[in-house]
């Protein structure tokens, strides 16, 4: 029925290597066709580096910020890595609290992370330690908010007909 392939053998290689991280990896889940590694923030850089250097995930497809209002671990970063040789992708998630919004940068591993992290800063207010040029990228410099956060209203706040009830949540 599903129109995708799960690469179980490749996934197992990743799981075996990641087991060495012990408690720093909080969970490993299967989300549709991709394996997702949930990692604590202090180990995210180490994990990315290990995956890049030892398991061939040499290509950073994308990384983006996330916001889950009302949860204890309110913010998050999601990385998609790609091992082009083996045709294998994985997802890495790293959640954090609203008081502790500083991630280690991935620009030392992949120069392409530069603008992706600037986007995460611009839209979610997530900081990156060691980033060479962390400033807003798509919004104007003096924009007063982080617009992709869920509490930033998209619609005119005085409208009565566009609240979350109408969107199923």
């Amino acid at each position: 029925m599903p129109g995708f392939v799960v690469k179980a053998e490749r996934d197992q290689l990743v799981k075996d290597r990641v087991a060495a991280f012990g408690e720093k990896v909080t969970a490993i889940t299967q989300e549709a066709d991709l394996v997702c590694i949930h990692v604590k923030k202090e180990a995210v850089h180490e994990l990315l580096k290990t995956l890049r250097d030892e398991l061939g995930f040499a290509f950073l497809t994308t990384c983006c910020g996330m916001h889950f209002p009302g949860e204890a671990q309110e913010f998050g970063m999601v990385y998609h890595l790609h091992n082009m040789r083996a045709g294998h992708r994985i997802r890495i998630k790293c959640r954090t609290t609203a008081n502790d919004l500083e991630y280690p940068t991935a620009t030392d591993l992949w120069p392409t992370a530069n603008w992706m992290e600037r986007e995460a800063w611009d839209f979610f207010g997530i900081k990156f330690k060691g980033h060479p040029n962390l400033k807003r990228i798509l919004n104007m410099e003096d924009f007063p908010a982080f617009p992709m956060r869920k509490d930033y209203p998209l619609e005119d706040p005085t409208r009565q007909d566009k609240d979350d009830r109408f969107f199923g949540r």
């Binding site: 839209f123 990228i137 798509l138 919004n139 104007m140 617009p147 992709m148 930033y152 998209l154 619609e155 566009k162 969107f167």
Partner: peptide
């Protein structure tokens, strides 16, 4: 400098 025609598609898509 980029972002001159940024239209916030990711935000719009959430509504």
């Amino acid at each position: 400098t980029i972002g001159y025609i940024h239209r916030a598609f990711e935000k719009l898509a959430e509504r």
